[in-house]
């Protein structure tokens, strides 16, 4: 699905990530850890085509990222759902329209029943008419997750999804991600929350990757 071969990423002359090799297989569950500024967000941005590697080969669903046009990358976003820590919305549109936005931009009509089910699944149906600034941090994260999965992507990339929410809400969000993984989705979560990783490993077979000294390592089982 997503394959990195000796991928490196440079910013302003300095190398942030180097010699990264990884294959993300369908249905796998990965955590990505590392100290702040290690390059976790950059790694995820590479995985959904927002950034182009400065060296190496990055293949997304069998297609080399370098060969992909801007429209190809836009189309790719229907197969990769992204959740950011500072999940951004269109603040002037109600929650339900924000969640359905991936369908709107694809020119597809939203099925009201399915939308209701989706918002019910993340526990936000009663908030459907609220504007994003009116939502709490946990509600925004769940809304971002609902938006990320509305087009049934094969891969979900989450960047510090529990960074701004309490432990109880983190577990609730984690439960949703584990459910998605059990449906066959590939999940990658960038986090430095070890408790979250331990809790997840008790439920699914998750691999833990660590970015250290610009390189990607498979973390030990002592987590």
């Amino acid at each position: 699905m997503i394959e990195l071969e000796s991928v490196a990423m440079s910013y302003g002359g300095g190398e942030l990530l180097s010699d990264m090799t990884l294959r993300l297989l369908p249905g796998s569950f990965h955590f990505l850890t590392g100290p702040s500024g290690a390059g976790k967000t950059t790694f995820l941005k590479l995985c959904y085509g927002e950034l182009m590697p400065s060296a190496g080969r990055l293949t997304l669903f069998g297609q080399d990222l370098r060969d992909m046009s801007r429209d190809d990358i836009a189309a790719l976003r229907s197969r990769i759902g992204v959740v950011h820590q500072d999940c951004q919305f269109l603040d002037h549109l109600p929650l339900i329209e924000n969640v359905a936005l991936p369908l709107t931009v694809a020119g597809q009509a939203a099925n009201t029943t399915e939308l209701r089910e989706l918002l019910g699944w993340v526990g936000l149906w009663s908030q459907r008419g609220a504007l994003p600034p009116q939502l709490s941090g946990g509600e925004r994260q769940r809304a971002a997750l609902a938006r990320a999965v509305i087009r049934a992507p094969e891969v979900i990339l989450a960047d510090e999804p529990t960074g701004n929410i309490d432990w109880e809400m983190s577990l609730r969000l984690l439960k949703l991600l584990v459910e998605l993984n059990r449906m066959g989705k590939t999940i990658v979560i960038a986090t430095h929350d070890l408790n979250l990783i331990r809790t997840t490993k008790a439920q699914v077979a998750a691999r833990v990757l660590r970015i250290q000294n610009r390189r990607l390592h498979l973390a030990g089982a002592d987590l």
Partner: peptide
């Protein structure tokens, strides 16, 4: 940025 993230074309 939001539109790009959810797959909007130019």
């Amino acid at each position: 940025r939001v539109l790009r993230l959810v797959g909007a074309r130019d």
